[in-house]
Design a protein around this nucleic acid. Sequence first.
DNA 1: CGGCCAGTTGACGTCTTTCAACTTTGGTGG
DNA 2: CCACCAAAGTTGAAAGACGTCAACTGGCCG
Lengths: 217, 217
Amino acid sequence: MEPAQLDGVLKAARRVNIGRGEYLFFQGDPADRVHLLLEGSLKLTQVTEDGKQVVMKYISPGEVFPVLAVLEGVVYPTSAEAVTDSRLMAWDRKTMTDLIAHHPGIALQVLKVVSRHVGEFQDRLRELSTERVERRIARALLRLTSQTGRKTEEGILIDLPLSRQDLAEMTGTTLYTVSRTFGQWERQGLIRASREKVVVLDPHGLVAIAEDLPDSR
Amino acid sequence: MEPAQLDGVLKAARRVNIGRGEYLFFQGDPADRVHLLLEGSLKLTQVTEDGKQVVMKYISPGEVFPVLAVLEGVVYPTSAEAVTDSRLMAWDRKTMTDLIAHHPGIALQVLKVVSRHVGEFQDRLRELSTERVERRIARALLRLTSQTGRKTEEGILIDLPLSRQDLAEMTGTTLYTVSRTFGQWERQGLIRASREKVVVLDPHGLVAIAEDLPDSR
DNA sequence: CGGCCAGTTGACGTCTTTCAACTTTGGTGG
DNA sequence: CCACCAAAGTTGAAAGACGTCAACTGGCCG
C-alpha cells in the first residue's frame, strides 16, 4: 500500500483511550468497530447464562480485534476490558469493508489473522479435552510469558495484573485449584507469585510440566 | 457473480470422491487445497502427541473447508476422514487467491464462514470450561441433529455412523461415560441408541438437560 | 460359525470442585 | 502517616464427578 493510502487509512481511524477496568465494548453490542491496540492490554471475556466468566483471549499491542466486526449484522461475542490503561485506534465497519473491497491484499491479511485465532482456539480445545488442570495452567502461563513477558533480573515477569481468578477463567478451573498449584510450583522454585503478579523463574520447568517431559520432576 | 464467471470457477474445480473411512488429507500435510462438500460427511480430527484423538468438527454438504488453506505456507491442522461415502469439489490455493483478488465479495463470504467457525469454537470452549459432561454430550447431540438430523417416524435420526467413542472425542470425555449417559437417557426415553446409531426421541428433553431448565427431570 | 469390534457395566481410585474459615495485601481517606 | 477496609489469596475437609481397568455381552461380516 502506498504511503498516501496508508495515510488515509490512519486518518480514518478514531483514537480511543481507556483506563484499567473500563470496558471498550460489551458482549452482545452491535459489532460495528474494529480496533487496533497500540499500547496497554485487553481481556476478551464471555459470560455464561449462569454468570460464569470465561476468558477467550488477551490482546497485546499490535493486535487487531475483533476481526468479525467487518461483517454486517453481527454482535460482539465477547466483552473487552482494559486490564491496563490502553490506547487504541478504531475503524467503523464501513471503512473496513471499503478497505477490503479496494485492497484484496488486506482481505488475505485479515484472513491470516483470523486463521491464527482459529488455530489457537483449536489448540485450547484440544487441551481442555485431553489435559489435566496443572498442565493447562502451565500452558496458559507459558503463553502469557511469550505474549507479555518482560525479562527481569529475577525471571520473566508477566506484565499484567493477573489474579488466580483470571488464570482459572483462562484454563477452565477454579481459583482454588490455581492457588494450590501455584503453591506447589513456588515450593519447587518454578515461579514466584503474589497478589495479581506472577514471575516465571524456571520456564523450562514449566515446559516440562506442559509437555510432560520425562525429566526433572 | 455473473454466470460466465461462476462457470469458470466451477470448471477450475477438481472432483473428488472418497469412500467411508478414507482420508482426504492428514494433519500436517501442506494445506494447498480448499474443498466444498457436495454429498456425504467428513470428520475433522486432531491427534495429540500422546495419541488421543479430538474431533474438531463434522462437515455437512454445502460446507467449504478448511478455509485457512487459502494462506501460503500453512499445513492442515486436522485430518479429514470420510464418515460416509462422499463427493467433493477441490480448488488449489492459487485458484482461490486469484478468485479473492478479483472478487472482493468472495473475501467477505470467506470471512463470514471463518467467523462462524470462530464462534462455534468459542461456544465449545465455554462449554468445556464451565459445563459438566452430561450437558456437553446433550449439546453435541443437539448440534448433530440440527446438522445431519433426518426425521423418521420414531424420532430424529442422526444420519451418520456415530460411535460412543466419536461422541467422547467431541465432548472431551471417555466412551465409558458416554455409554453410561446413553443408558440413563434411554431409560428416560430421551434417545434410542444402538451400534454407531443414535435416534433422538425427545429433543426438548435434551434441550432441558443442555440448558438446565428447571422442568421435567 | 467364528472372530472382531462396539458396547456395557461394576469396582475403584483420584483429580477437582465446593464450602467455609481465615490471612494477607494494597489502596484510601482521615 | 497510619489505620482500616475490601479484595485477593490460602488452606483444610469433604463430597462428587469422572476416568481407568477389567471382564463380559452381543451383533455382524466374511
